[in-house]
Amino acid sequence: MAEERTPLQGGNPGWAGETGEYGHLTEADVRGTTYVGKRPPEGTSPGASCSYPYQVGGGRPDAPLFEGPYRERLDKILSRYPNRQGALLPVLALAQEIRGHLSPESMAEVAAALGLAPAYVRGVATFYTMYHKRPVGEHLVQVCTNVACNLCGADEVLRAFLAATGTEPGQISADGQYTVIEAECLGACGFPTAVQVNDRYFENVSPEAVPAILERLAQEAAARSSAAARQGS
């Protein structure tokens, strides 16, 4: 969320704005973070029109579901659909935001909250790839290897992420920080290779840029935890 440009090594900034003819744009301009403002994990509630989950890492598997601000978000979601079943996708995502992944218990709790059958909820949850049925690392790195990125070397980018994190696809790295997986088309074909890290896209990623991206993620994580520690003390 840096306001200033934070150039990365390897000649690749990691977002689309720094290629082509729009070099004057900052990362915030491209990502729209200034416009969007603060996000729920930092203390504000989502807007009137919806409540959408954030894929941010930091979920706790034992955290209570739908309490406090999360209850408000659940209620907001429910108010936007003509029936409770309609709320299933956003509510599953909310549960995943809170707990990091969707365990059988979480699915059962979501089913109870919406008055649905647990087996039905399981059927829906397993249909969609963004619901994690097992825990993932703090940073979920999804490397698009579909055709447009593949033509431009996505396989090497995937290998670079796997090598740099010392993992196999889908594994959690030893420090719990990273899970690297192959992703289907991320809808950023013009900026290959597209990589999604949690809720953020990195574009034009080359294998050389991978260490710098991981370095940046580590720095941000360290900054978040020290901020949390300050708040806690």
Partner: peptide, 22 residues
């Protein structure tokens, strides 16, 4: 009248299953 079965996963990985151990 009891939704005890569902299709889990999708595509060629689809299978019929109950809710885990239920």
């Amino acid at each position: 009248g009891a939704d005890l079965l569902g299709v889990v996963q999708r595509g060629h990985r689809s299978a019929i299953d109950t809710f885990f151990e239920t």
